[in-house]
């Protein structure tokens, strides 16, 4: 049948030519900004400034990276982000898995009521201000807990994991295990979790990327620079143009400072995205899987 599908009219050939070329152009348009950031981060800022850099790095230099590596704030941010991502992901994934399993069980009394209890929050929420005041009252301001606890176990993720459990853990398996005297906890730990590695991977990646890339919670709940995650440090550099003066000690003129700032910006974009860029080939497969499972229901 494949030969049949590959039969082409003249119009089809024209279609293919147009299709391949426009997709290729589209892809290049998406790729180019990323590529440009990469080459610019290795180029002489004066040449970036004059527009000479566009296809290959020109006036190769590691100056930007040297300045970035010498800046403590960025590394503190890096460490904080790593900590928040690890702790946040661990809490959130645990809560999600534990909540999703009972909801996947058809024999759970009150299952619908519990489901509604979770789902209702998708439609209505108290909003930013009451939540903020609560976190403040709980003395969680300026602690890691303000970032990792309130959002743990989102409804959307609970539904995705529940769907996965329902479609991969056969009821017969549980019944057989129970006849052998297996408890719910044991069954969950010894049978369900080992069979759920794909969805656990999806959840870990969803959360890790979310924590790594997020800045909003940190912005409203943290007020000490030593606790800032990388994205907040980046915001100061990229969006608010506040480059740490220690990175600029040896730069004399104002104009030169501007140019070095640009160079540093390109560099930090690369440094901040590096963990994700390295993980990306693995990430992609799992994220795609997550979207697919999510699209079945919910």
């Amino acid at each position: 049948m494949n030969t049949l599908l590959s039969r082409k009219t003249k119009g089809d050939i024209l279609f293919d030519v147009l299709n391949y070329s426009s997709l290729t152009i589209g892809m290049l348009l998406i790729l180019y900004p990323l590529y440009f950031v990469l080459i610019a981060s290795f180029s002489d800022p004066n040449l970036i400034y004059s527009g000479a850099v566009w296809l290959f790095p020109k006036g190769f230099t590691l100056d930007g990276y040297e300045r970035i590596f010498a800046d403590r704030q960025i590394w503190i941010g890096y460490g904080n982000s790593l900590l928040y991502a690890i702790v946040g992901t661990a809490i959130s994934v645990t809560v999600t898995l534990m909540a999703a399993y009972p909801l996947a069980r058809k024999d759970l009394a009150g299952r619908n009521a519990v489901m509604w209890f979770f789902v209702f929050t998708m439609f209505f929420s108290g909003g930013l201000i009451p939540t903020y005041l609560l976190v403040k009252d709980l003395n969680m301001i300026n602690t890691i807990w303000a970032l990792v606890v309130p959002g743990a176990g989102s409804v959307f993720n609970i539904i995705i994991v529940r769907t996965f459990f329902q479609s991969t853990i056969p009821d017969e398996m549980r019944e057989a295990a129970f006849i052998d005297g297996c408890s719910n906890t044991r069954f969950f730990l010894m049978m369900v979790l080992p069979l759920s590695k794909p969805i656990i991977a999806v959840m870990v990646l969803y959360h890790a990327v979310g924590f790594w890339n997020g800045f909003f919670d940190a912005m409203i709940y943290l007020n000490e620079e030593s606790k800032y995650p990388l994205q907040l440090v980046l915001r100061n550099i990229l969006v608010q143009n506040q480059v740490n003066s220690s990175m600029m000690i040896d730069v004399e003129s104002y104009a030169a400072k501007l140019r070095v700032t640009e160079l540093i910006k390109y560099g930090v974009i690369i440094i901040a995205s590096l963990p994700l860029l390295i993980l990306y080939p693995f990430l992609q497969r799992y994220f795609v899987k997550g979207v697919m499972i999510g699209s079945i229901k919910g």
């Binding site: 809560v95 909540a99 979770f118 929050t121 909003g127 009451p130 609560l134 606890v149 309130p150 176990g153």
Partner: peptide
């Protein structure tokens, strides 16, 4: 198993609805 999620939702989702 449901307890942690329910507790988090009660505190951080439902209490703010009261706070609103």
């Amino acid at each position: 198993f449901l307890l942690p999620a329910v507790a988090i939702y009660l505190v951080f989702k439902y209490y703010p609805m009261y706070g609103v």
